[in-house]
Design a protein around this nucleic acid. Structure first.
Lengths: 241, 241
DNA sequence: TAGGATTTGTGTACAAATTACACAATCATT
DNA sequence: AATGATTGTGTAATTTGTACACAAATCCTA
């Protein structure tokens, strides 16, 4: 195989194509980007650009650059795709079945991200990129369905005891919005009184002394995340907490 | 850079050295192998073979082969190093700072493993490989200290609600041994009566109607893990649970 | 073989957290 | 002014977690 492989290598280098070849393993990152709108969890997907996956959707991802930290790559992907700079991102796991990518051997590390869909800095320029309801996901490319499942599972665990969920909401929000969001994530209905008691106990919120003004019914009070509570948890030590 | 890189490549291929080079990213796996003995958690380490880390210890690991699933690689490493075939292994996270490896760009995926030190199939042939008390770890190579921390954190979470801990014990054990093990993992003392109540509630154990016979004091009853409870949780869906 | 050391095995009372559940007040719409 | 939708609030029952003490079993030693 040596000579043959070397030839392939030369060709690859000469054509300056990506580092997906036949005897090296390429490494990519994929981002599962969650948003929340109309009481539903959404995720951001792009039309696959591989012929094998012509009508399928896939996660936003890219190969990791040789001079770039693994954990920096998803930030770059997000910046390029959404214009957002200061996002919640957390590593979830790596996926590396030999046959997961049709064009060669690619191991990918998955990250999940929580963003506020109404963030005015959010700029989705690529018109192949769209929000999808988590409920009715179409066919997905690669093992991306499985990756999304793993990220959702992580999200469900994490929202129970860390204030990460607020990355999905605008700065001011009502308790109803917060409850709707929890329900969308956990996939269950929650009792309103018990939910409020539990949230109050966590002591995450500041009462803003303002009311909703855009609802067709009795408005609720508005809250914001207590200043000082960082909603972004980055780094490895926090990975599983 | 093209010509220069190509030369390096040729050399690498010609010398059949590993896939650590200057313009590709190599991928490895590292295993944090936990054992339990004399009321202490231990981990299995090997003397580093890099000059940069001459007197340091490192995790057992290897480069992932191009025709091998990522999640299979740590099983291979364990088989080669310990002779064990049917081990508990779980992916914890991937580590990929650009400067983490002195010889080139290597991203590693960390796994943690739980084995019974007294397993008679355990054969450690390489005399550079030794068990170390988790308490007094010497200097470690690479970012392996950080990796161990992440694995320990995962272990602590996981033993609270899944019966993985029994991978560290012999088939028959007393409640004292089990409690000592929990205490070693969690780093706390537990109240005996409350501990027993909690374990009883989980319904993980079968009473063997046998007694310890090798202790210098009143012997305790022996238990074993209920048959049907799989102590090995593999696969992706279980990754974070 | 008796006494000391060590460890097993067991239950109860209190505090804290979780669950189930209903009604009046507010605002928008008509 | 009545209707519809939603907010805001408390209590009782249950479950879970925590703190804590004493008698009995076995080994060891004198």
């Amino acid at each position: 195989m040596a000579a043959d492989t070397l030839k392939k290598l030369k060709t690859a280098e000469a054509e300056k194509i990506s580092h997906i070849d036949y005897f090296n393993i390429a490494i990519s990152v994929d981002c599962v980007i969650f948003g929340f709108e109309k009481k539903e969890l959404k995720i951001l997907l792009i039309k696959s650009d591989l012929e094998e996956f012509a009508d399928k959707w896939s996660l936003l991802g890219d190969l990791v650059r040789v001079d770039e930290d693994l954990d920096s790559a998803p930030y770059r992907v997000l910046r390029q795709r959404t214009g957002l700079d200061d996002v919640f991102l957390q590593q979830v796991g790596s996926f590396g079945a030999t046959n997961r990518h049709p064009s060669g051997r690619v191991i990918t590390t998955a990250y999940y991200s929580l963003i506020n869909i109404r963030n005015h800095k959010l700029k989705i320029t690529d018109n192949e990129v769209h929000w999808h309801s988590l409920k009715d996901l179409k066919a997905l490319a690669f093992d991306h369905k499985q990756i999304i499942e793993a990220c959702l599972q992580r999200l469900r665990i994490q929202v129970m005891d860390e204030p990460v969920i607020f990355n999905l909401l605008p700065e001011k929000f009502s308790l109803r919005e917060l409850q709707d969001l929890y329900q969308a994530i956990l996939g269950t209905k929650l009792d309103r009184r018990n939910f409020r008691k539990k949230i109050a106990l966590k002591n995450w919120l500041d009462d803003l002394d303002e009311m909703e003004d855009d609802v067709p019914h009795r408005p609720g009070k508005l809250y914001k995340l207590k200043t000082g509570l960082k909603k972004h948890l980055a780094g490895l030590a926090e990975k599983v907490k």
